[in-house]
Design a protein around this nucleic acid. Structure first.
Lengths: 371, 371
DNA sequence: TATTAGCACTCTCAAGGCAAGAGTGCTAAG
DNA sequence: CTTAGCACTCTTGCCTTGAGAGTGCTAATA
């Protein structure tokens, strides 16, 4: 099948990757022979290792220190060598059960997915909330008095998105009054996008007899503000979990990583900032949103230098064209790719199912013509 | 005033604390004399240092390595020596401005408070959401169809708490139908606590002619579930931010902390777990909720061994008897207490003001923004 | 031609030793 | 009570050294 590698070299590359992923220590020719009962001597394996190194799949840190896979080595492993497994059935069941327990609570899904990903793959996780590719569309507004001069506005949008805003009332208003005004504004704005609402408000203001009274206009402005805020905020929203899991990897533990402890700490801080700020993964998210299946980005393959030591396993989840998000694992390049990939695949399909159940038959709003 | 310490010893203790907090290095007699132009020789200062050590306010790591404050030393400093400052006016203004920008968005306050605390005090922050001391009280229920067989229930409780739940509909229902049922359930349950709702449901079930139809009962059960979930969850909810800020303290940077890098890493991981799990600060939160003013817990003074190397500065915020939460700073015992305390004091009073505006039933004059 | 045994070579890693430096504690004098 | 002076202690960094690990190479072998 693949790029002119003899069977044996492929086998050895595979073993090196597996061994290194497992132990986090450079793997020696001798160790391979002993552990896997290859029918050959260590010298032969050494020759093969040297060849694999020439081909760019392995490296040395120094003259005499076992081999370590390069990014290309991992890539070849992922593409051609690894066995495609799935999570075990008990694991799947356990995860499904956890999602079952928060059924209905849409806003918990993202968080749960992050936690499960992290724990299952023993690395950090990234999840973006499901988002519609269509612009946000207003549905419904509800006013609840908190006291005489204050009310809570609950704004409901298509797709089950809910925002709350408090507002100061210009005058004392009865609950009935509030309900009537809210109903009126809801009716006027229902199914409109942000553009639609703004347009409506503009044209209405020019009418000799505006349909929006003062208070209604105040509410509409609130809606506009909230929609603006949402559009801005949602771009960047990346939920992340599993920092501790990732930092339990040997890379971050100086005693295990045979090297300067200083390094480990810097790496730790570095990882922290990547997760906190989402820096270095800017293009990856939209890219993953546009593709199908599980994406694997290994080390410096794609993104900036920042990420040179990390790999990312990402997948899209959601309902075609309606709502979608991205979820995945991030960790050191020395990652258990088969497990990460099957975890991401399983969770993403699970989330997709959940969302499909929710959105599949949704009545779509009447078509509206605006840019 | 305080425990038989001469003026000079107090001065020296104060200087040692300040110096150590600033530099994170053990402070030497010589350095003190030079830097602060004490009119005496280093030998004199050494005698005083020795005395302060005998009294338990300072220690040595080893024979010849400057002094470091003990927990008792910090305590004395906080109680008697430090100057009570406030945040500078420009800082206050900047912070107020940030809160102004999220006015109305109740659910952002906690997050913002956490971020501001952390950035201002350069340590990690803890914030619990404002919570009523009264049990949760239902107010209002709203149903919005998502598609034929699915609806979103928006549950509004007293105090502006909103939960959302999706539910599967037993039959196709018109929007009007949904509104009517929601209104009916709202009316029946309004102002009830969890106990109240459960009781009502129980007695109603025994009536020959129950007021709750099948669908209404389903909704009521949903309410019960949500209230249960809230009561359980809210206990533990601690929002935390500023991990990076805290980990930028020299304690966590092996190059600066003159000691085993191993230590620094372990400490880092340890801090991480404390923040993630809230372990080790169990009793502190309720305790702070019950007290007034800013609490300072230094090192092992109070909690478990876990926290021996950390200090916490906590304050309650909220409206008397109505809603309250706790916010504060956590960091190494070598902490800039004056700044932490004034930060916590300021943010807590700011949050209190915001909440008061929201919950007090007195009509307040419209706020003037003089930015 | 592919494999293998043997061996020299390289580099790391841990331990030990050594010198410099920092800062104290103590003593004795002012 | 203060201070100068000095010995003493402990750290820290640097260097050296020896052991060990694992390779790369060479030459013999099937």
């Amino acid at each position: 099948m693949a790029a002119g590698l003899t069977e044996r070299r492929q086998l050895i590359l595979k073993l090196v990757v597996q061994e290194f992923v497992e132990t986090a220590m450079p793997v020696a020719s001798d160790a391979l022979v002993r552990k896997y009962r290859l029918g050959v001597s260590s010298a032969t394996v050494r020759n093969e290792l040297a060849a694999l190194e020439d081909l760019g799949y392995l490296t040395h840190l120094y003259t005499s220190a076992g081999r370590v896979p390069t990014d290309a080595g991992y890539r070849f492993f992922v593409e051609n060598l690894m066995e495609r497994t799935s999570l075990s059935l008990p694991e799947q069941r356990m995860i499904r059960h956890q999602f079952y327990q928060v059924r209905g609570e849409l806003d918990q899904w993202v968080q749960l997915a992050g936690a499960v990903l992290a724990r299952t793959a023993q690395n950090a996780s990234l999840v973006t909330p499901p988002r519609s590719s269509d612009p946000l569309r207003f549905r419904h507004l509800e006013l609840v008095a908190i006291h005489e001069s204050m009310a809570l506005a609950v704004l409901v949008f298509h797709g089950g998105i809910v925002k709350q805003q408090t507002l100061t009332l210009d005058a004392d208003r009865s609950p009935d009054d509030l309900r009537r005004v809210a109903g009126r504004v809801s009716d006027l704005l229902t199914d409109l996008t942000l553009n639609g609402v703004e347009e409506l408000l503009n044209t209405d203001a020019q009418q000799p007899q505006p349909s929006f009274g003062d208070f209604e206009r105040l509410l509409a402005d609130l809606v506009v503000r909230a929609m603006h805020a949402f559009e801005e905020q949602v771009q960047e929203q990346i939920y992340s979990d599993g920092l501790i899991e990732m930092l339990s990897q040997p890379e971050f533990i100086p005693a295990l990583a045979r090297e300067d402890a200083e390094r480990a700490v810097q790496r730790m801080r570095h990882a922290l900032e990547i997760l906190k700020s989402g820096r270095g993964l800017g293009q990856l998210i939209p890219q993953a949103l546009a593709s199908d299946g599980v994406q694997v980005i290994i080390g410096g393959e794609n993104s900036t230098n920042e990420m040179r030591e990390y790999s990312i396993v990402l997948a899209r989840y959601g309902v075609d064209r309606a709502v979608a998000g991205v979820l995945g694992i991030i960790g050191p390049t020395r990652m258990a790719y088969p497990r990460s990939i099957s975890t991401v695949r399983y969770i993403s399909s699970l989330m997709s199912d959940l969302l499909t159940e929710l959105y599949s038959t949704e009545q779509r709003p009447p078509e509206e013509d605006n840019a």
